[in-house]
Structure formats: structure tokens, C-alpha cells
């Protein structure tokens, strides 16, 4: 790893001015789990590393009945998983955070770092999109808030401008929404998801409304399955509906091919994942009825 200057701002304004001073020759570091790997593989060689490690205020997790959940960007995966606030107000989020990577990485990696790195083979983005999350970004000119959808631009690319820091993630109050999240590994020995899927919907006496169905890890950035969502609106899920939705999802997803799996395989898993998450949401057993 190339030598670099290591800066540890003790406040957000200080961090922002350091970033401004060093411009593109510097990198932000949160937990460091992704950044250090990239630096050691010499994919990145910053002159300066600005560590956010001392900004404890960015680790806060809070709930407000009107505003919903606010998760500091520096909250570690283990903090999110273990937070009683998250467990109370969005248990599916706690489950997602507690099931990604492995215990050591969860103790160190942050949810903000995860989103900012925008590696497709990760979990939080898919879930958070379905939850309708927004993010707050601090810059020299002040704060801006934008939907996560707009934040995630492409493979390893976000809407962060140089000198900006992701400070928080907001989840709207869940209301009567049901949220489900599933991740699929290609084999049990792999650890990164090859496909993941999140469903968020209001179930009104059986019929679905306000459906959000997001697949991730299969695509450069998590993809909303818009046609499938439309198809599902107003329907009560049964085996036939789930199968039809699965076929739609398989048709509309635009999967990537890489060293871990090709597009055809991912498409098949997306179909499967769609069918299963819908049946799970409806309390039906997917094991009986193959698509």
C-alpha cells in the first residue's frame, strides 16, 4: 500500500474542509473494509485518507414517528443489526444487516461505506430501495437530501460529488407496510449474494398495493421490477399469480454476467426469488409448487 497522510477530523465541518482542501487526491474512510482492499490492490492510491472514525455523531440510530428511522452513515452493520430501535421499527432491516458478510466484517464495515462503495454484490442497497430510503449528504455548501434511487448511479458509482460525505439514511415510517428480504448465494460456500430481492407492499385484506419489488446483486445497481410491480398491484398472491410474476420478473430483469455467474443463471434465480418472496409474503409454502 502506498504511503498517505492520515487525517482524523473531529467534527463534520472539519471533515468537509479537509476534503475541500485535498480535493480528488484524497479518500474518505469509514470502516475501511472496502477501501483498504482497493488500496492494497492498487486500484486506489490516495495521497490523503480522511478517516471519519472520530465522528461518533454519525453513528446514531434514531426513530421518529413522523420522520421514520434515521441511521447514521457510520453505523456499522452490527450496530444496525443489534439496535433495539431498528429491531422495533424495522425488524427486516435488522435481519438483513445481521445476515450479510460475516461477523468480523459486520463489526467493522458501515452501512454508509457499503452504499458509497456501490459494489453490486452487497445487500443493503436492495433492501433500502424497497423501503423507500433517502439519504442525506453533507457538502461545503450545506446538506442535500435525495432518494437512494438517485444516489445509486451505476456499478461502483454514486451521486456523491467530490468533497461530499454521506451522513444519514432515512427510512419512512413503515405504516402498514410489510417488508421482506431474501438473499441467494450461488452455492452454500459462497458468501456474497448472487441475487437478492426485497419486497415492500401494503397488504389490504389480501390484495397488494404500493408494491415495491427490487432485485440486487444480479444487476449493476439494484433494479426495480416495474412491470412485475404493476402486475401485482391489486392482486392477492396465490401460486398462479406468483408464477406469473416470476416469469415477468425474469423477463424484465437485466442481469449482469461476471466471474461468479452468467446472466442466464442470475435470471433463473431472479425468477425463483420472485416467486418465493411473494409466496412467503402471502404465507404460502413455495416448496410445494414449482414454477
Amino acid at each position: 500500500m502506498r504511503p498517505f497522510d492520515f487525517l482524523e477530523p473531529s467534527s463534520l465541518p472539519e471533515a468537509l474542509s479537509m476534503l475541500a482542501e485535498h480535493g480528488d487526491a484524497c479518500c474518505i474512510m469509514a470502516g475501511g473494509t472496502a477501501l483498504l482492499l482497493a488500496m492494497r490492490q492498487r486500484m486506489l492510491a490516495p495521497e490523503t485518507v480522511v478517516s471519519l472514525g472520530k465522528l461518533d455523531e454519525l453513528r446514531d440510530i434514531a426513530f421518529d414517528p413522523d420522520a421514520g428511522l434515521r441511521i447514521g452513515a457510520l453505523a456499522r452493520h452490527a450496530d444496525v443489526a443489534g439496535s433495539s430501535i431498528v429491531q422495533a421499527h424495522c425488524p427486516a432491516l435488522a435481519g438483513m444487516a445481521g445476515g450479510l458478510a460475516n461477523p468480523q466484517v459486520r463489526n467493522q464495515g458501515t452501512i454508509g461505506g457499503n452504499l458509497c462503495y456501490a459494489d453490486p454484490a452487497t445487500d443493503p442497497a436492495t433492501f433500502l430501495l424497497a423501503a423507500g430510503a433517502e439519504v442525506t449528504i453533507a457538502g461545503r455548501g450545506g446538506e442535500r437530501r435525495l432518494p437512494l434511487r438517485a444516489f445509486l448511479v451505476d456499478y461502483f458509482t454514486t451521486a456523491l460529488e467530490s468533497g461530499e460525505i454521506l451522513t444519514a439514511i432515512h427510512l419512512p415510517p413503515p405504516g402498514s407496510r410489510q417488508m421482506l428480504y431474501r438473499r441467494y448465494l450461488r452455492t452454500p460456500a459462497e458468501h456474497r449474494p448472487v441475487v437478492n430481492i426485497a419486497l415492500s407492499a401494503v397488504t389490504d385484506g389480501g390484495a397488494l398495493s404500493d408494491v415495491r419489488l427490487i432485485v440486487g446483486a444480479a444487476t449493476p445497481v439494484p433494479q426495480a421490477l416495474a412491470q412485475t410491480e404493476d402486475f401485482l398491484a391489486g392482486k392477492s398472491v396465490n401460486a398462479a399469480i406468483a408464477a406469473e410474476a416470476a416469469a415477468l420478473a425474469g423477463a424484465e430483469v437485466e442481469p449482469l454476467s461476471d466471474g461468479r455467474a452468467d446472466a442466464a443463471f442470475r435470471r433463473q434465480i431472479v425468477r425463483t426469488a420472485t416467486r418465493r418472496i411473494l409466496l412467503d409474503a402471502a404465507g404460502l409454502d413455495w416448496k410445494d409448487n414449482a414454477a
Binding site: G32, L36, L37, S51, Q104, Q108
Partner: peptide, 13 residues
Amino acid sequence: GKALKSCLCLAAQ
């Protein structure tokens, strides 16, 4: 008190 992987962490951290 929490396990982490020391190869993914700077001494400075």
C-alpha cells in the same frame, strides 16, 4: 471486545 479482521484495518484506526 469485538472481533475484526486486522488485515482490513489500519493500525491508525
